[in-house]
Simulated scan of single mutants.
Amino acid sequence: MVNRITGRMSGDLRRRRVGIVGYGHLGQYLVKQLQDDGLRHGLELAFVWNRDARKLVGTVPEELQLGKLTDFLERRADVIIEVAHPCIVQDHGESFLKAADFMVGSPTALADLDTELKLRKASREAGHTLYIPSGALWGGQDIQRLDDGGLLQALTVTMVKHPSSFRLGGHLGELAKGAQQERVVLYDGPVRRLCPLAPNNVNTMAAACMAAPSLGFDGVKGCLIADPNLPNYHVVEIEATGQGGFSVSTKRKNPAACGAVTGAATFAAFWSSLLVCQGHGGRVYLC
């Protein structure tokens, strides 16, 4: 008999094998969680890949190190997690989905319409799930339910961080550097235009766009603010508007060291997302 939650046959105790692509702070955290607590949750590490393989030496067992990313099939992973860079999603996401479930840690990559459509198609055809982790997006599944019911009319995501917590170039980078005395609005407009300008800083906004496909990257509004008076946390504000005068606003403070791109609570959120990555079939699923 098949378990409707896990998709496995009753009595099947096979662990789900997890591949980690990227070994920055978040990748290191996930690897340690899998090594320390994975077995209790029916998970085991299949492989770890990093662009600079030297970073894995001495910290990841040699047999778990993947030298060439294109060799990932040899490790027979059930779910692959990208926590590296949007280009990995664009270059390899389709191949990953043909073989396994795929959690996109850099959903800003999906602001490229061709990439989004390609991955949605691969998910449907292969029967594997394209997972979008909620990360710092509070109430993401509520947004998704509202959108699924055709009731969502508008969605705005505002992210406020200390200027040193941004990894920006060009005009936005200059604006952030200039925010030394007072808060400065770096961007206010459709999320699609912002994602390629701030790929490492607005994954929360991209997750909101995937949670609300009726609006998508063109319809969801993003506001990015640098505030020198926020040295110890990031702020994410969500404002959703529905039919009949419905509206909801949330404000989330995420503790973060000064200069940190990712808030502390986001690490635990990723681990929680991984624990539900099974049994959802060929679809996009916010976890």
Rank of each mutant, 00 (worst) to 15 (best):
Thr108Phe: 01
Pro199His: 11
Gly139Leu: 11
Gln153Tyr: 06
His92Ala: 00
Gly242Cys: 07
Val83Leu: 03
Pro199Gly: 05
Asp188Gly: 06
Leu97Lys: 06
Met205Gly: 12
Val48Ala: 00
Met205Ala: 15
Val31Ser: 11
Glu63Phe: 14
Ala264Glu: 15
Val261Cys: 03
Val235Met: 14
Thr129Gln: 09
Gln180Gly: 15
Arg120Tyr: 10
Gln278Leu: 11
Ala100His: 00
Leu130Glu: 03
Ser123Lys: 03
Leu39Glu: 15
Leu146Ala: 06
Ser273Leu: 08
His234Arg: 01
Val60Gln: 06
Gly150Trp: 05
Glu63Gly: 00
Gly7Trp: 15
Thr6Gly: 00
Val276Lys: 15
Tyr29Leu: 13
Phe246Ser: 04
Gly178Gln: 01
Val157Ser: 06
Pro196Trp: 02
Ala126Asn: 09
Ala269Trp: 09
Thr262Val: 15
Ala46Val: 04
Leu130Phe: 08
Val57Gln: 06
Gly282Gln: 12
Ser247Cys: 13
Ile143Arg: 08
Ser134Gly: 13
Lys221Pro: 03
Phe267Lys: 03
Gly279Cys: 00
His171Cys: 02
Gln278Gly: 09
Ser214Pro: 10
Pro255Ala: 06
Ala226Pro: 00
Ala206Trp: 07
Gly189Gln: 05
Lys118Trp: 10
Ala154Gln: 11
Gly263Cys: 02
Ala208Met: 02
Glu94Tyr: 06
Tyr233Glu: 14
Arg193Ile: 12
Asn50Phe: 06
Ser134Met: 13
Lys98Leu: 13
Asp91Ser: 15
Ala260Cys: 09
Pro231Phe: 11
Val83Lys: 05
Gly178Val: 03
Tyr187Gln: 04
Gln181Glu: 14
Lys32Asn: 15
Pro196Val: 02
Ala226Glu: 01
Met1Lys: 04
Val160Gly: 08
Glu239Ala: 13
Leu274Ala: 12
Arg40Trp: 02
Gly219Tyr: 05
Gly19Gln: 00
Val261Trp: 02
Gln181Gly: 10
Leu26Gly: 01
Gly189Cys: 09
His128Tyr: 13
Cys287Asn: 15
Val83Ser: 01
Ala154Met: 15
Ala111Asp: 04
Phe246Gly: 05
Gly170Lys: 07
Glu44Ala: 07
